[in-house]
Design a binder for these strands. Structure first.
Lengths: 310, 310
DNA sequence: GTATGGGACAACCCTCCGTTGTCAGCGAGA
DNA sequence: TCTCGCTGACAACGGAGGGTTGTCCCATAC
């Protein structure tokens, strides 16, 4: 059963004649006649009674008409379901509390009419996330790409859109609790705890950072969740952790935690957005534009980023 | 949007690979690939992520899949709606109380699972009824064809299947009320009333009958319905009317009417069933077979039929 | 390294669809 | 009654599109 034939059948039924239906459809009367004839042959019944002044539906035609309309509207709904922009844009923000999530939230507030499907593939390493992008099961993700910005799998594009300046997060009893800023070099005295780093990228980042400035950064321990981490920090007189400037935690109310800006230099965590080059979703295009124009925040003259991210 | 492509899409989604889907559909893997590629191009989105070991649905593919299934089932419903035999057979029995209606009823009792749409085009002349048959808005009608059995419009077929023997219907005070039979010749003394004959065919029949045997048959008066006629007959000492042997009236309970068989000869009213030669409805075929085998009732050696019906 | 299986790409072929051109039937109007 | 106009059907032609064969590439398994 050909949908064009069904469309033609409905048009003829509505106009009452082949000629008018053909005009509506932009084809010749002969073509319309052929289409309906084919449909009739396929179904094995006559759909129209042809007269010299038009057509009338047969009983079979009358029986078919509502189903034909339903069929066409089903086709329309199917098309609409995948029409780029109809479908929610599926974005991996990695974690609900870090910069990408907040940026996406800001974007959403600016475009409240769009539909988003925000996911966190937090237990998934970058390679798998990129595979999902490539497979089309994910529209975009935010990752820090170790092997430099250019070498994403073919068909994918990446753009470094977030340079998240690190701040030190400490509890009230930590020696640096009341510092206005802290030079990076001073942190050699204080162990930094970054548990739950499953991905090689952030692990590599902190390893490089530690090596470059002689810091002690522990990325090994298992993560028992953000709350456990914050509680630990709040209680500790020694432990501190890094948080991104653009991240958000529910700490001020529950723990007396402090964010201390790190300077000379400021560690900057580079994040790229990765997407399929041929992804036609218009909201994706808008979002990428938003990222490029609005969120390359403060350029980091005083920042440190690893060599591989330059 | 091509339904074959949609079918292929669903098959690939279900099997997880093009090759298996192609086998199911009886086409080559390349053809299946082409179909899906065309669908993807038409929709502007990728539906599958192709890997070396099969395929996986993209988000768009997942969004489309339920709609695609719905589309296919809508197509199936549409086909089923006009599949010969699915649809109710629409038959004109002319009147609810006369032979065709009763015969159809008997046929229905023999095949209780069929669907019938019994109509009475009683105010419609034979020509219009035949036009409906030709147009396909009616599957069959019962008519007495004046211009001999063969000359139905082209594309139509007719078969004389009912020879309805006339009986005289009289009230209790009619002179013939207690006769076991009545010879036709005797009816010259008694006026026959046949009101409401809209069609030229029955009018012609009764005119011919009257002329042939010197009867007085009044076919002129308007009909006020069967009940009015029966009440009139029941009250009258003079009026009588003809009813077919195969007809059925609700008279025994309400009026003391009597059916008196007419003999020497018995007027026989010939009825043909008319249908489209190319009507594929299987129930129609069954019904025609039923009519031909079962209902050419008693052959009428002692009957009279007009010349034009021989 | 090799074998295997799945998909994509290229080239070819044929069918089928739409077009142009024409004819037949029915109704309306002169 | 004849002709005109409108509507569909039929025939023939041309081109696009869908299917097939043949081949290569890639990833995995042994």
């Amino acid at each position: 059963m050909d949908l064009d034939a069904v469309r033609t059948f409905v048009a003829v039924a509505e106009t009452g004649q082949f000629q008018a239906a053909a005009d509506d459809l932009g084809i010749t009367q002969q073509a319309a006649s052929k289409r309906v004839a084919t449909l009739e042959r396929e179904l094995g019944v006559r759909l129209f009674a042809r007269t010299a002044r038009g057509t009338r539906l047969t009983v079979d035609g009358q029986a078919l008409l509502p189903h034909a309309r339903e069929l066409l509207s089903a086709a329309e709904r199917a098309t609409a379901a995948v029409t780029p922009g109809r479908r929610a844009l599926r974005i991996d923000v990695v974690g609900r509390r870090i910069a990408p999530s907040n940026i996406l939230h800001a974007f959403y507030q600016q475009h409240p009419d769009i539909e988003l499907d925000v996911v966190t593939l937090t237990a998934v390493d970058a390679a798998s996330a990129l595979a999902e992008i490539g497979a089309g099961t994910l529209d975009a993700t935010f990752r820090s790409l170790r092997d430099s910005a250019g070498t994403v799998p073919s068909g994918l594009r990446s753009s470094r859109v977030i340079d998240d300046r690190h701040e030190l997060l400490v509890g009230p009893r930590h020696p640096l609790a009341n510092a206005r800023t802290v030079p990076l070099a001073e942190l050699t005295e204080h162990p930094i705890w970054m548990p739950g780093m499953a991905d090689p990228e952030p692990v590599g980042y902190y390893d490089d950072l530690a090596k470059a400035f002689g810091l002690t950064i522990d990325t090994i321990g298992p993560s028992f969740g953000v709350d456990a981490l914050l509680a630990e920090i709040a209680d500790s007189t020694r432990l501190a952790t890094f948080v991104g400037e653009g991240s958000r935690y529910l700490w001020p109310e529950r723990y007396d935690l402090r964010r201390i800006p790190v300077v000379d230099p400021t560690p900057v965590y580079p994040l790229s957005v990765i997407w399929r080059a041929d992804n036609p979703h218009p909201v994706l295009a808008d979002f990428l534009e938003y990222l490029r124009s609005g969120y390359r925040t403060t350029s980091c003259d005083d920042g440190w980023i690893p060599d591989w991210a330059r």
